[in-house]
Simulated scan of single mutants.
Amino acid sequence: MQDSVIATDELDLAVVNCLQLQPRAPWTLVGAALGVDPVTVARRWQRLSDAGIAWVAGRASGQGRPESCLAVVELSCSAGETLAIAERVTELPHVLSVEHTSGPRSLTILVEVRDLAFLSRFLLESVGPVPGVVATSSHAVTKIYSMGDHWQLHVLDAAQRAVMLRGTRPRVDGLTSEQADLSRPYDEVDRQVVLLLGEDGRMPVATIAARAGLSESTVRRRLANLVGTGRVVLRCDMALPDSGWPIISWLWAHADAGDIDAIATTLGRLPGIRVCWRISGGHSNLMLALTAHSLHELSIVEARLADEVPRMTINDRSMVLRSIKRMGRALDLDGRSMRAVPLDIWADPVAWRAPAR
């Protein structure tokens, strides 16, 4: 049960940062990195997890298909129906995140579907008929330069990071790395494992085996393969207010096609850039998420963008007023996880219609 009065301290943040580097790291490794007894570290994580402050979740990488589509969908909603719509859309298994945003769009959602035809069906059959949805606008993500999966708190020093990364292979991510083997299809066993990781990315092998009716050796082998080939994304998340980075702003920008890659490289070196995508479907061809400690700091980050990337033009911006779902977790008013809503990219098209109230 969540406890709204729980406050985080530096050790809590350090534990989360360790799991951002290695989401399934054993407590012995985290303890060694932080110079803390593993039992203490495990107890701290359990406290954070029980309160919904931090969590690890897994999801499939694009269904193992190169044509899979990640898309940003903006929903214009009637004011009185916005919350009800957000709650309905949150339940859809292809929706990664749902945000209540400022500006002309009421809700901004991120979806992952198998192809553009499925995106069309999602918009026309699942979202369009929902009462109160006035209009939709979609933008396909054509290239990912950075993703919230790799965003970090940056509270570890160099020595602590070195311990966490010692002996590990570079992280392979199906959304961001060309090393990922997305040509291999997922079979039913892979699907079972991935969906259970969607409930808890640190679920023990024994628990996965029991839940899926598989042997522990099979689960261990499949899990190693899914993670090693980048066909599953494991991500450690934290409630933004508890993390000390409560502010997120989305920017829609434009750059000449020949400049985009160089601009994205520059953006990747700037603090505060949580997401950077190349998009299509409108005048803007870049979409950025800026994160900051305060609204005042956000204006400083934007000013630095103007200095560092003068060839990029910002066309529009919006503030995230509230995160309602983030990467498979339904969030409360404080941004804390209330429950898992596992991302099921294999869901039957008939089953993913938004449920009626």
Rank of each mutant, 00 (worst) to 15 (best):
G230M: 06
G282P: 12
A224I: 07
I247M: 03
V233W: 04
S138G: 05
D334F: 09
P271C: 00
G335Y: 00
T207Q: 14
R88P: 04
S318D: 06
G228S: 09
A51D: 02
E87M: 07
V194I: 15
R191L: 10
V98K: 07
H254C: 03
E216I: 08
T82G: 08
A351L: 09
E297T: 00
A253N: 05
T90E: 12
S126L: 01
I247C: 05
N285D: 06
S299T: 06
M1P: 13
R191Q: 14
L11W: 00
A14W: 02
Y186L: 15
L182K: 02
V133Y: 06
P104E: 01
T176D: 03
G167W: 12
C77D: 07
M287I: 00
E112C: 05
R44T: 14
P26C: 06
R211T: 14
Q20A: 04
R105M: 12
D237L: 14
H150P: 01
Q179M: 12
D115R: 07
A354P: 12
P185C: 05
V205M: 08
V194Q: 04
V341S: 05
D237C: 13
E81N: 13
E297R: 01
G198M: 11
G35C: 04
F122H: 09
F122W: 02
R88A: 12
S137C: 11
L182P: 03
